[in-house]
């Protein structure tokens, strides 16, 4: 009982040490802009279609879910605002993080794990280059930056999905659907969504690069790294979703008291 728990704590500790190494490398010997742009482009292109599709249906689901409540209170006009607010604040960042975890996280840890077990990372060191600077940092930053693009893409598509479902299912026209979005989706909601997106992206980028970089033991080791990435990121994201929600609610309450 105690040993698995100690292993988990050990793993988290190692991951945090690895994150510190990445951040120190970013400060002392940053990678090139070209490599960051290349990775950002790669991650964005890889994940845009699935994110957009998922965003579309999230908007549609939110609209279906909120229709009943808003109708009961005679507030159908607020449907678009409520649905978009929920997507920006909570569902969007969470969905993007889960999608990226399944797709980019698994891909990155498998790619780095294969490079590790085939000694390509050792070869980079032998050629006098720093593997953290050359291969980890661009992937890390690529995942973090692209998660914001993907959040925007998912959000836009969720508005479309909500609008379509609103007109088909709830009988609300698109103009009415978007009218109250600026009223309900405040700067605070957007800030909250962006903050969550950043935290989730940092968790994902740290875990998948750490798991891949520390893989050992051939194909089996690469498999373990991919599974470890999936488990650790999913759990990390859910735990930090709760934590960031708590934090942002506290911040909002303090702000309101101040006003």
């Amino acid at each position: 009982m105690l040993k698995p728990l100690l292993n988990v704590i050990d793993d988290i500790g190692e991951c945090l040490i690895f994150l510190r190494l990445i951040l120190r490398t970013a400060y002392r010997s940053p990678c090139t802009w070209e490599s960051i742009c290349e990775q950002t482009w790669k991650v964005s292109v890889q994940s845009t279609p699935t994110t957009a599709l998922a965003g579309f249906f999230v908007g549609a689901i939110m609209t279906v879910q909120f229709t009943m409540q808003t109708k009961a209170f005679g507030a159908l006009g607020y449907l678009g605002g409520l649905s978009t607010s929920a997507t920006v604040r909570e569902v969007g960042p969470l969905l993007i993080a889960f999608l990226l975890s399944g797709k980019v996280g698994a891909y990155t840890s498998a790619e780095l794990g294969t490079m590790r077990v085939t000694e390509q990372i050792d070869a980079i060191r032998c050629l006098g280059a720093n593997p953290i600077q050359e291969i980890i940092l661009p992937r890390f930053l690529g995942i973090v930056i692209s998660s914001f693009f993907l959040l925007a893409a998912g959000l836009i598509m969720s508005i479309f999905g909500g609008m379509l479902m609103g007109s088909v299912f709830s009988g609300i026209n698109p103009e009415e659907y978007v009218r109250h979005i600026p009223t309900i989706v405040t700067q605070f909601s957007i800030g909250n969504g962006l903050f969550k997106c950043l935290v989730f992206a940092l968790i994902l980028a740290s875990v998948c690069t750490y798991k891949g970089y520390s893989a050992t033991g051939g194909a089996k080791g690469v498999g373990r790294a991919v599974v470890g990435t999936a488990v650790m990121t999913m759990v990390g994201i859910v735990v930090f979703d709760w934590f960031t929600s708590l934090l942002s609610e506290t911040a909002l309450n303090l702000f309101r008291e101040g006003v």
């Binding site: 085939t118 000694e119 390509q120 050792d122 070869a123 060191r125 032998c126 050629l127 006098g128």
Partner: peptide, 15 residues
């Protein structure tokens, strides 16, 4: 390390 070169057992080529 720049003064050293290494051929790895399984070549470790960048695929």
């Amino acid at each position: 390390q720049l003064r050293m070169g290494m051929l790895f057992q399984k070549n470790a080529l960048f695929d």
